[in-house]
Design a protein around this nucleic acid. Structure first.
Length: 272
DNA sequence: AGTGGCCCCTGGCGGC
DNA sequence: TGCCGCCAGGGGCCAC
């Protein structure tokens, strides 16, 4: 599921719900492989206070007292849900963190791809991520320079979290369309002007998706949703999952191929 | 350095 | 209706 806008929506919801300042009173693990533990044990979390919650790329970063951190990556199907501790459970609840005040933080993950890492050194993971597209310090000149020193298909590069962080399959396809760049263009052939258009497009698309609380595909319950929300961004998609339908700019049918092992939607007329 | 294949998992959907 | 294969918003690892 979640790319930057969906993770950011979860982040904002957690802040809004007042989770910062609560303490951990217990942890129940229903699927052990959701956890990546180093030397820490989950029992070590008992009594720790959630001092801050941040987002970096597609990670949610819970800063705990005692210099510990939870890094949560939702991967394909994960979501975080908050509910009263007496609320009904779901068979896809993998890890439940009991909080002070009778609240449960539930890691819900049908496909079991998500991971919760407990670490005293979050930078070992977060430090390897590429820049945030929405970071104002990340400018077009820097982006162009990064593209120029690589020779990869632009789509593969934009999906690579070590290159830039936060973009996934939906928003990469949408960004490439908005910038008029073909997904298979090799990165060092991208012009300075195209690089600027790509970064601008990514920012506009991500920002407006955040305002819409992300993109929810299909209508199944399985499409995540923290606390029952559904992102409203699907109506803004111009190429993603629109193969065979007319391009909204030129009318030609949207094409679908595979690039970097991922379904790829684009307009062969508008994207060069 | 860059690419493609495979794996981790479950559930929904289209086709027959 | 029932079964089956295919597909999925992510990412790590490995061989070439």
């Amino acid at each position: 599921m979640p790319e930057l806008p969906e993770v950011e929506t979860q982040h904002r919801d957690l802040i809004e719900a007042g989770v910062v300042g609560l303490s951990i009173t217990g942890v129940a693990v229903h699927w052990h492989r959701s956890l990546v533990l180093n030397s820490t044990r989950m029992a070590d979390l008992n009594g720790l206070i959630i001092e801050d919650i941040k987002r970096r790329g597609k990670y949610l970063h819970f800063c705990l007292s005692g210099n510990l951190n939870l890094l949560i990556h939702l991967r394909m199907s994960g979501s975080l849900r908050l509910r009263n501790s007496y609320g009904s459970q779901d068979s896809h609840d993998r890890v439940i963190v009991h909080l002070s005040g009778g609240l449960d933080l539930v890691f819900h993950d049908p496909r079991k791809f998500g991971r919760i890492t407990v670490t005293d050194n979050p930078e070992a993971i977060l430090g390897k991520l590429g820049p945030e597209p929405l970071d104002a310090h990340f400018d077009a000149a820097a982006f162009y320079a990064m593209l120029a020193q690589r020779r990869r298909k632009i789509k593969a590069l934009l999906l690579d979290q070590h290159f830039v962080s936060g973009l996934g399959n939906i928003y990469v396809d949408e960004t490439l369309f908005a910038a008029g760049v073909h997904p298979e263009r090799v990165s060092n052939t991208i012009t300075e002007e195209e690089a600027a258009r790509l970064l601008d497009s990514a920012r506009i698309i991500l920002s407006s998706a955040i305002e819409q609380r992300g993109t929810s595909l299909g209508d199944g319950e399985s499409n995540f949703e923290s606390n029952g929300y559904r992102g409203r961004n699907i109506g803004a998609l111009k190429v993603f999952q629109r193969s065979g339908q007319p391009c909204l700019q030129c009318g030609r049918q949207i094409s679908k191929t595979v690039v970097a092992q991922r379904a790829t939607h684009f307009c062969a007329a508008c994207q060069k």
